[in-house]
């Protein structure tokens, strides 16, 4: 049985040290070891986007990264991003437009939308649809999400 490996990283601005099994992926580490349950597990094979989070500032799939690979990294999740207000425009727009139903995809969807707006402050509807194609939503049919991202982009 392989042993655990010590890792030290920054999660939502705070330093974290743990010893983890090599096979533990980052999203399970965040959810189980740190109680950060806002990042969701939808498929565990990198397709659905529910586990989207920021790793060293880049949007990644939490199920396709090992926790040991995050040693020394900076991780931000929906909890941290919400608390520092990084998603406020999008969250307000999603609320106003009812761009979420069950809410399971929503944290990943918000992070993906924020990544788009960071590189393209005024994306077209087609560009929004293309960019969000890696994030499944089974409830909304996407239209309201596209509207909400468009509205958030239009706000100063």
């Amino acid at each position: 049985m392989p042993g655990t490996i010590p890792i030290a990283l920054t999660v939502n601005g705070a330093p974290v040290s743990r010893a983890v099994e090599p096979r533990l992926n980052l999203v399970d580490f965040l959810r189980i070891d740190l109680g950060l349950t806002g990042t969701h597990v939808g498929c565990e094979h990198g397709v659905c986007g529910a586990c989207t989070l920021l790793l060293d500032g880049d949007m990644v799939r939490g199920c396709l990264v090992l926790a040991v690979q995050a040693d020394g990294a900076v991780v931000e999740t929906i909890e941290g991003l919400s608390e520092r207000g990084a998603l406020r425009r999008l969250q307000d727009a999603f609320l106003a437009r009812n761009a979420l139903q069950c809410g399971f995809c929503t944290p990943g969807m918000l992070i993906a939308a924020a990544a788009l707006l960071a590189q393209d402050p005024a994306p077209s509807r087609d560009a929004i649809r293309a960019h969000l194609s890696g994030n499944y939503c089974r409830c909304t049919g996407y239209h309201a999400i596209i509207d909400a991202v468009e509205a958030a982009a239009a706000k100063p």
Partner: peptide, 25 residues
């Protein structure tokens, strides 16, 4: 293990069971 975007799904699905993962990241 490089970016892991192909290896990790295969590991998660237990399609592969290596003794050792060498992270060249």
């Amino acid at each position: 293990l490089a970016g892991g975007q192909s290896l990790m799904p295969a590991l998660n699905m237990r399609l592969l069971s290596p003794e050792l993962v060498v992270d060249i990241g």
